[in-house]
């Protein structure tokens, strides 16, 4: 099997035996250096997927493979070296008394030499623009700052997969953009796959592939452009579409011809200019 990929094979999961299935026969593969966004309404099974990827949960049916290794109780510690995870609420993921201790925590668990740790702490704090806060106490930071520290902690371990489980939900708009830019830079510089679980449509357009979850099943898989061109169906399952996508729809109703589903302002405006010259 291909190394450095995450694979779900016929995975089903439920929290208790008398509870409904949260995931039903889910199959997908995330390859090396891919950026995959997983979207879906609350309760569609997105976060459960994330927890199955690093062995916080194990499936009742089917198998999850990370880097060719089947995730189970025996392999979970190896798996977690490869899968870094950042959760939604920054207050629930702090252990260190200073920012540097906190960033070091993951590395300490993996027994890294001190010199390397010192180096990595500085590098990863710089990547999230928190280098000035090395000696600060985490609980005194704002929500957005805390989240950047959490991301730094994951970067420091240098995993092959990073899962951001609604990690930007609590950040302000500029903070969100910064984090996404940071994550995107890191993804390009280092060999790693990125899995973002998100409601933020801007984040979705940055991914190379989108998996849409609904009622515990994969409802659709495709490029952001493919997915957003099905906007009527997305609305049906409680999802939103980006502003440009809605604007494009209204324009089409007004008889304006567009050549493709726009993903950003630029694409829509370029299309409008072509249509202006031909109208």
């Amino acid at each position: 099997m291909e190394e450095r990929q995450v694979e779900f094979r016929n995975v089903s999961f439920r929290y208790q035996e008398d509870m409904p299935w949260v995931l039903k026969n889910v199959n997908f593969t995330i390859g090396p250096d891919e950026w995959v966004a997983i979207i879906g309404h609350n309760g569609s099974g997105k976060s459960t997927i994330a927890k199955l990827m690093n062995g916080l949960l194990f499936p009742q049916e089917g198998e999850v493979y990370v880097g060719g290794t089947k995730v189970n109780a025996d392999t979970v510690w190896d798996v977690r070296k490869q899968v870094g995870m950042v959760f939604q609420n920054p207050d629930n993921q702090f252990v260190g008394t200073t920012v540097r201790d906190d960033v070091a925590f993951g590395m300490e668990n993996h027994g890294m030499p001190r010199d390397l740790m010192v180096n990595r702490i500085q590098q990863s704090l710089k990547a999230v623009r928190m280098e000035k806060f090395e000696r600060h106490e985490p609980h005194r930071l704002s929500g957005g700052q805390k989240q950047r520290i959490a991301i730094a902690g994951v970067l420091a371990v240098s995993p092959e997969f990073i899962i951001l489980d609604e990690a930007t939900a609590m950040l302000d708009p500029k903070g969100r953009k910064e984090i996404m830019q940071t994550v995107s830079d890191v993804q390009q510089e280092r060999d790693l796959s990125l899995i973002t679980i998100t409601h933020d449509l801007q984040e979705v357009t940055m991914a190379s592939r989108v998996i849409v979850m609904n009622g515990g099943e994969i409802w659709m898989e495709g490029s952001p452009r493919d997915v957003f061109s099905k906007k009527d169906h997305l609305t049906e399952i409680g999802l939103d579409t980006p502003f440009v996508s809605k604007m494009a729809d209204h324009l089409k109703k007004e008889g304006v011809r567009l050549s493709r589903e726009p993903l950003n302002h630029q694409e829509l405006l370029e299309d409008l200019c072509i249509s202006r010259s031909t109208m």
Partner: peptide
């Protein structure tokens, strides 16, 4: 979006609280 349309594409639409449908109509 409207600012960019004006600056880079010479499309002049002022925002006065219109809905997207209304804006699309004016734009068209």
């Amino acid at each position: 979006f409207l600012t960019k349309a004006k600056k880079e594409y010479g499309i002049n639409l002022e925002y006065k609280g219109q809905s997207l449908a209304e804006l699309a109509k004016e734009l068209a």
